[in-house]
Write a protein that binds this DNA or RNA. Structure first.
Lengths: 257, 257
DNA sequence: CCCAATTTGTTCGTATGTATC
DNA sequence: AGATACATACGAACAAATTGG
């Protein structure tokens, strides 16, 4: 059993949970991977000597974690599935739903991670990749005239960062930056009604990003790091000034960015 | 649109999934929080006009995500539950089970985050907190004589970092560092049998950590940042030298650190 | 200590939906 | 179109756990 090293805590697992854990152990022990088929419902009922409902609940647990997918029909069944980034993002988002994150919290992380990302990508990107980044920048080549437009530009700007992360060869860095960008994109900006679009946010953001792409193309690691560090510092300052608040809601599974 | 030969819309949700999403929406819309009770199984069966099994599967989905807990008996029921750090760690670990993380990947993140953590804590810790850190350090005040002992010291050293993270007021930073420490603690060190315990790892690690605690006590932010940065750089180098490999396995839900 | 009420947990039999051949 | 193989859903009954009298 997976928690063979079960903790002293006498917290018992329900039977479906036990079955789910047992199946996970099978998968690991037998080296099964994405696409491999688990025993059919009927077989599982036999092997575990449990009722159909119990087995089905176990499958649901694994499915909710993103570890399996099931298909009906002949040749169907339950299959091991690589946990998707969307699922992982949604599940981790559930955790932070109950934490109170502030703008400061989020930007402390961004300020630490994103410059590192930029440095690691400098000189490593292909021309199509660099052009793809420039394409996103065209979404905000003109200053926004309404708060709605500005919000759309803000999201596009976050997509720029998510795309940058996507190009990293480090899966951990990639996930973390994209996760944070998704959280920020999911924010509703609470702003006084008379507030005008922030031209400074637009112009400095655009300036930073074009300088960044230039540094990336040149292979200037230190420059890229420094530019993004400044960018983060500035974005943090401007976000705070706008009294942006992080609203608490469950992230939908579909990715925004 | 593509002909019928292509697979049917994969976005279709099964009924239990629909119910689970609907319940999540209720919780958010009505502002329910941890401890609040969901309608009973019987009520849900009525409201959704679905069979008991279907409703139960929906509850299981929410439970697998760590969002609810259920209790039997009078006064029992299904209750909204704050997603625990352990659960979030296990769920996110499932995602990285299918990614191939290298030591380099992990240390790129540690090198970016941990110095920032140290700087933010300098001068902010109470005497009991600083003493707690020093207590953990006593676990490796003597050099290890066997590979097993060295492994135990390595884990204790990771606990030091996890404790440090625990003291941060930033929930995001706290989670990320503890998550990574847990992953590293879960690693099995694959080492040639004739390899001797690495005295250098021990002595430099101990030295760094005591200098760090001193800087934290003194409130020397820049010093703390620099010490931890050097520490990470060195640990990275030594881990690579030892040909440590990241084994892929599902993290058990119980926290190691 | 037992009993009764309440609520989730489990079982079984049957029927339906869906994809493949 | 029909047969087959699989998951999906339903409903009624029973079991187990917890609380309070």
């Amino acid at each position: 059993m997976p928690p063979a090293t079960t903790r002293a805590n006498p917290e018992r697992l329900s039977r479906p949970q036990q079955v789910a854990e047992a199946i996970k152990s099978w998968v690991v022990a037998r080296g099964w991977g994405p696409g491999d088929r688990l025993p059919s419902e009927a077989e599982l009922i036999d092997r575990f000597a449990m009722a159909k409902g119990t087995i089905r609940e176990a499958i649901r647990i694994l499915e909710a974690q993103g570890l399996v997918k099931s298909r009906t029909g002949p040749g169907g069944g339950v299959f091991v599935h690589r946990v998707s980034e969307e699922r992982a993002t949604a599940l981790l988002g559930n955790y932070f739903y109950f934490q109170h994150l502030t703008i400061d919290d989020v930007y402390q992380i961004r300020a630490a991670l994103e410059p590192e990302l930029a440095a690691s990508l400098a000189g490593e990107l292909s021309d199509p990749q660099l052009r793809a980044l420039e394409d996103v920048m065209t979404c905000y080549s003109e200053p926004a005239t309404t708060p709605e437009e500005e919000r759309a530009q803000h999201i596009a700007s976050l997509r720029f960062h998510a795309m940058l992360a996507e190009m990293s060869g480090n899966p951990l860095l990639r996930f973390l930056i994209r996760f944070i960008a998704n959280m920020l994109a999911d924010i509703t900006v609470s702003r006084k009604l008379y507030a005008q679009p922030n031209r400074e946010l637009w112009s400095t953001g655009l300036d930073y990003q074009s300088r960044l792409v230039a540094a990336l193309r040149k292979g200037d690691k230190d420059g890229a790091r420094r530019i993004l560090a400044e960018h983060m510092h500035n974005a943090h300052r401007l976000m705070r000034a706008q009294e942006t608040v992080l609203t608490q809601r469950f992230l939908p599974e579909g990715k925004i960015i």
